[in-house]
């Protein structure tokens, strides 16, 4: 009787030791939604693994990686020169995994006779330098352009400001809406509207423009030719070799066909095959 109890206790203990591990993920707000999906699915696969995720920003994640406060640092940007210097000073080596791509589609009403837009034209529209459609293309009517944007809490907004606006400010008349769905709805209703949304949200109700002549497709984002897209990274500390254990398992899951299929559901583009 006693022996059985001890055996059961030992068995429980070993199970806890084997599976009861924690995984800390910090960093980018943009990567956060997909990381959360992966974490949920991963927990279902390996019960006993505790995962904590924070999405305060890419820099916060990399800082936490230096301090050893996180296992994985999500980042929507490449590592900065100052961070490379710090790695040299501290004798540390971080490696990136590209886990997904974020592509931003420029959408207009289906009735508007325009198919392509350049980055310069986008800048001009959103900074308020250009206010009517005929200034973009003389065959278009002389009607006010109605630009829509996400509000400043959104990661898509941040990316747009950084890469299209080059840090410059949006014109006051740009309408900042609280959801992508509201933006799509307005572009459907308004013949002269323009908006930008995550590629995963493109529907047949609106027209997605080619940017600099390149179509916003998963293939073009994967090929790196679509200009308004960026890779999303997970950085890990590889000073003592590539990650093992639960960190490696998590990354393996994220890059698996199942994990990559989840990327599409939150509006990003998969980095690897989904089948």
């Amino acid at each position: 009787m006693k022996k059985t109890v001890i055996a059961i206790a030992l068995a429980t203990l070993s199970v806890v030791l084997a599976f009861g591990s924690t995984l800390v993920i910090k960093g980018s707000n943009t990567v956060y939604p997909v990381a959360q999906l992966w974490a949920e699915a991963f927990k279902a696969l390996k019960p006993g693994v505790e995962i904590s995720i924070e999405g305060a920003g890419s820099s916060t994640g990399i800082k936490a990686l230096f301090n050893g406060q996180t296992d994985i640092a999500n980042s929507s940007r490449w590592i900065k020169p100052s961070e490379i210097e710090q790695m040299n000073r501290d004798g540390k080596y971080f490696v990136p995994y590209i886990v997904a791509y974020d592509g931003i589609a420029i959408i207009v009403n289906r009735s508007l006779a325009i198919d392509n837009i350049t980055l310069q034209q986008l800048y001009d529209i959103y900074s308020g330098k250009v206010t009517t459609w005929n200034q973009i293309d003389s065959s278009l009517p002389r009607v006010r352009i109605v630009p829509f944007s996400r509000d400043n809490a959104s990661g898509t907004f941040e990316y747009f400001i950084e890469h299209v606006m080059k840090g410059d400010k949006l014109a006051p008349q740009v309408q900042q809406l609280a959801s992508t769905r509201a933006e799509v709805e307005q572009v459907v209703q308004n013949n002269y509207a323009i908006g930008y949304i995550g590629m995963g949200y493109i529907t047949g109700e609106v027209k997605a423009l080619t940017v600099e002549g390149v179509e916003p497709t998963v293939a073009n984002v994967n090929a790196g030719t679509y200009p308004v897209s960026r890779p999303l990274f997970m950085f890990v500390n590889a000073t003592n070799g590539l990650p093992t254990g639960v960190v490696a398992d998590f990354l393996r899951y994220a890059l698996s066909p199942e994990g990559q299929a989840a990327v599409l559901t939150v509006g990003y583009v998969n980095a690897y095959g989904t089948k």
Binding site: Q175, A178, A182
Partner: peptide, 8 residues
């Protein structure tokens, strides 16, 4: 939701 969200 409906006021437009433009800071003008």
């Amino acid at each position: 939701m409906v006021a437009g969200g433009a800071t003008m």
